[in-house]
Each structure stands twice: as C-alpha cells, then as structure tokens.
Amino acid sequence: MIEVDGINSYYGKAHILNDLSFSIGAGEVVSMLGRNGAGKTTTLKSIMQLIRPQSGTVSFQGREITRLAPHQVAKLGLGYVPEERRIFTDLTLMENLEVGRQPFREGAPEWTVDILFDIFPNLKERRHNRGKALSGGEQQMLTIARTLMGNPICLLLDEPSEGIAPVIVEQMVDTILNIKKQGVTVLLSEQNLHFARLVADRAIIIESGEKRFEGSFAELESQPEVMEAYLSV
C-alpha cells in the first residue's frame, strides 16, 4: 500500500529523516513509535508531501507520489489527520466536514455525514457549532471525521491519543478499530505504547530519523533493551 524508500527530509538545514525505509501492507494498522522529535510527524508529512523529501521515494499503491502536491496525494486516497488538529475554527462543524468531502472512491469504504455521526455521536449534537466552540476531544474527533469524508484508502494519523481525556482515549481506540474493520489501512504515530498495542498490528520504532525496529508487539516486548533505548517506558 505504502512504500517508503530511503527518504531524507529536512526542516530548513536540520536533517530530520535519515534514509528511512519501510512499507505498509493493505488493510494493516501500523504504529510508528518513538520519542518526541524522533521524526514521526516528519515521516507522515513526507508521505503526504507536506514536506518534500530531498531524496528517496514514496509510493502509494505502486505509484510514485514523491513529486506530487499534497492535494494530488489526497486525491489518490491518502487521508491525513494532523497532530495539532487544525480544524477550521471559524467554520461550523458541518462546514469542516464539507471541506474534507471528496467523491466516492473505488476500493475504499464510503463515509457519509450520517455514518460519521453514528461513530461520533457527540459531534452530531454540535454540528452547527463553530470549530472554536468545540472541546479538545471533540476537535480531535472532528479532524478524523473530516479526513474520513474524503473516503480515504489509507489514513495517516498523527498522535491520535495526544492531549485528550482518558475517557476519550478509549473511544479513540474503538474508532480506529472500527476504521480498520471497514478496510482502511492506517499508519499512525504514537508515543504511548499501550495505546499503540491496543490498535496496531505492527510497530515501527524511529529514533533520530532512522528506523531502529520493525516487527510485532510480541517481538518488541521480547527485546526490553530496544524498548528502553527508544521509548519512554
């Protein structure tokens, strides 16, 4: 589904990703783990082409997307949910969903406003509220719902559990499992190992922009030195 092959990405002069390679299969939920500043967000942005890798390639469904603009990547069926939520605070909840809307896409589940309101019942009550009036948890739900309105084949989720209340975190786990059940491939970044284990099939550990581990959670737990070295556990 996604092939990342030897990408190098920079922020200005700072070298963030260093020859990073991995691949995600169709229908998988994979979690990138690593500390703050390890390069998780940059990886997702580099896939989305919000940051252009200076070398290396990213392919999606066998097609190279490294030179495309972000909106072209999105049109191919990659959905991006940013870390800082970035909802449109001056727009109502319904308008936020409208911005994310894209036509139905072959090979992906179709999401409608009604289906999304079933998954996120809180959002339904607040559909005419402006984005800025929503709580942090509601905003987090809205960013995911907004991206799902684009009927993505694959979802890139940046730190979905960050900065929301524990109750909402449980809801988030259900949501991601639900999305997986619909057949959407998910690549998420996480700092929270417990959260990642609940939702993901596989883990990739990143440190200083390099891949340090790739495998199942069982394999990861059999290597406590890896967990200790790269995760804040």
Binding site: A69, P70, H71, Y80, Q102, R146
Partner: peptide, 8 residues
C-alpha cells in the same frame, strides 16, 4: 490543511 484535504 485545505491542500492536505485534497483541494487544489
């Protein structure tokens, strides 16, 4: 963000 949601 608008671009990342597929709008040119």
């Amino acid at each position: 963000m608008v671009g990342a949601l597929g709008v040119n």
